[in-house]
Structures are given as structure tokens and as C-alpha cells.
């Protein structure tokens, strides 16, 4: 009896940090913004329950357009990242051997240990009007005037794809690693072309890695703040920026909380949809990464 009580006490003590962490830093704060998002100001310093913040989102074009734009561009960025990363992952997993393989993977990892802001700074120095590419084009005689490559959607997409690459390559390479060479050989022996083998054997095998990579890249892209703001400037128009503006600049917390809930909903919906469509579970997906 005493032993049982002692073990229950031990269990409680072991669980206490997890309960404090998840309760105070995750669950209650989310309950707070959920409640906050449904409160409207009816008079100075007086708030009441209402759907006003969500209505405001749907009636103000700037808000829902920014939201739709963020969602759409994030999907585009995810697709582009997948296409760009696939040949690299395939090379690392299937072609490169020994030290070359380890080195290629390590070289992929290195830029991503450096702060996102440093990477974005690099792109700003390359792309801006007075930047390296503009300067190179002028000195080669291709352009006669400075070329502004920054502050447009292309720059935002470039920056976001760059930021997502690693999170695509690692799960892809992990998934491709386990593909038996004999299976690929058999595909060729049975008369499959390069393309058929890729489409019917390699890609289906890599599916768990593709899903994991896409989900992670999408989440990181949708939730990104610095890259669209710095590379897009006034044209960046990212939804996280709206959340920041409501919370910090305008001090309209209920509106910002509603936006936060919408972003969370979007991100969770896409993750859920991705898992559902491909029959993967969250646990195994995160393990892939």
C-alpha cells in the first residue's frame, strides 16, 4: 500500500513539469486567445461576447485577401521546394557514396543552422537595386540602369523556398535511403524507362518523406514573418504581419487573437489534410523529419 502510494507520488512528481509546461505555456494561452477572439469592445474598456472580430476578417478585403494570398503562396512555395529538392535528395540518397554523401548532407545542413535573418540579409545584398546581381548585370553591360529585384513576389518566393529546402531534403533523403536498389533494377529490367521507374517506383516509395517534408515546409512558410516582410517590403503582405500589426502596433488584441486562431486553423487544416490524403500519422511524420 505504501509502496503503491510512493510510486504514485513519484509519477506525479515526474509528470509535474510536463503538466506545468503544457498547461501554462500551451493549453491555457490558447484558451485565452480563443476567448479573446470572441470578445468585442462595446464601450471603452468594456468587452462582450461576439463574432465581430471574425466578421471584420470577412468584410475587410485586405484581411481575407492577405490570408488567401498567404495560403496560396505557401502552397506554391511548398510545391517549388519539393521539385527543387527532389533531385538533390535522390542524389544524396542513391548516388553519392561514403564521404561525399556525408559531406553533401552536412553542406545542406550548415546554412540552416545560421539565423534566418542572416540568410535573408544575404538575399537582400544580392537582390537589391544597389546589390550584387544588379551591379554584375551593369558591369557586364546587360543592364544600363540599376535593377531592383527586391520587394516583389518573386523575391518573397525565392527567400521562402530557400528557407524550406533543408526541411524538404532531409525527410526525402531519409525516405529514399531505404529503397532497395534491386527493386529499381527490376523496374529497368522489365522495360521501364527512367521516367516510368521514377513515377511508379521511386516516388511512391518516397511518399512518407514527401508528405513529411511538405507539411513541415508549409507550416514554416505560413508562419514565417521576417522573410516576406524584409524581402517583400510593402508588397510582402503576409498574414503573420497582420497579427503583429493588430497586437503590437494597433493594440487591438481581440482582433489579433482572431487572426491568430485563423492562422492556427489554416496550418492545422493543411497538416491534417496532408496526413489524411496520404494515410500517415503525425508521430511517424515528425519522426521522418
Amino acid at each position: 500500500m505504501i509502496a503503491k502510494q510512493a510510486s504514485r507520488l513519484t509519477l506525479f512528481l515526474l509528470l509535474a513539469p510536463a503538466i506545468l509546461w503544457l498547461g501554462l505555456l500551451i493549453v491555457l494561452p490558447h484558451v485565452e486567445i480563443l476567448v479573446l477572439s470572441f470578445s468585442e469592445r462595446v464601450a471603452p474598456r468594456v468587452y462582450a461576447f461576439g463574432f465581430g472580430n471574425y466578421l471584420e476578417f470577412f468584410t475587410e478585403p485586405l484581411y481575407w485577401r492577405t490570408f488567401a494570398r498567404t495560403a496560396f503562396m505557401s502552397i506554391l512555395v511548398t510545391a517549388l521546394t519539393l521539385v527543387l529538392a527532389f533531385p538533390i535528395a535522390l542524389y544524396i540518397a542513391r548516388v553519392a557514396q561514403g564521404r561525399l554523401k556525408a559531406m553533401l548532407l552536412l553542406l545542406c545542413l550548415l546554412p540552416f543552422w545560421v539565423s534566418e535573418l542572416v540568410r535573408t540579409l544575404g538575399w537582400m545584398i544580392l537582390l537589391r537595386e544597389t546589390g550584387v546581381i544588379s551591379y554584375a548585370l551593369r558591369s557586364m553591360g546587360v543592364a544600363s540602369q540599376p535593377v531592383e529585384l527586391l520587394y516583389n513576389d518573386g523575391a518573397v518566393i525565392l527567400g521562402l523556398v530557400y528557407g524550406g529546402l533543408l526541411f524538404m531534403i532531409v525527410p526525402l533523403a531519409n525516405a529514399l535511403e531505404s529503397l532497395e536498389p534491386a527493386v529499381v533494377e527490376a523496374g529497368y529490367d522489365l522495360g521501364g524507362s527512367r521516367w516510368t521507374v521514377l513515377r511508379r517506383i521511386v516516388i511512391p516509395h518516397a511518399m512518407p518523406g514527401i508528405v513529411a517534408g511538405c507539411i513541415i515546409v508549409f507550416m514554416l512558410t505560413v508562419g514565417n514573418f521576417a522573410t516576406p516582410v524584409l524581402l517583400g517590403g510593402k508588397n510582402g503582405l503576409w498574414f503573420t504581419e497582420q497579427i503583429y500589426a493588430q497586437f503590437i502596433t494597433r493594440f487591438n488584441w481581440p482582433q489579433g487573437a482572431a487572426f491568430g486562431m485563423l492562422l492556427l486553423l489554416l496550418s492545422s487544416a493543411i497538416v491534417w489534410l496532408g496526413l489524411r490524403l496520404t494515410g500517415q500519422s503525425l508521430g511517424t511524420t515528425l519522426k521522418q523529419a
Binding site: 494561452p29 485565452e32 508562419g223 514573418f225 491568430g260 492562422l263
Partner: peptide, 8 residues
């Protein structure tokens, strides 16, 4: 998303 963690 990190921003949502922050505001909550």
C-alpha cells in the same frame, strides 16, 4: 506557428 505561440 511561432507567431501564434508568441501572442497566446
Amino acid at each position: 506557428p511561432g507567431v501564434v505561440l508568441g501572442i497566446s
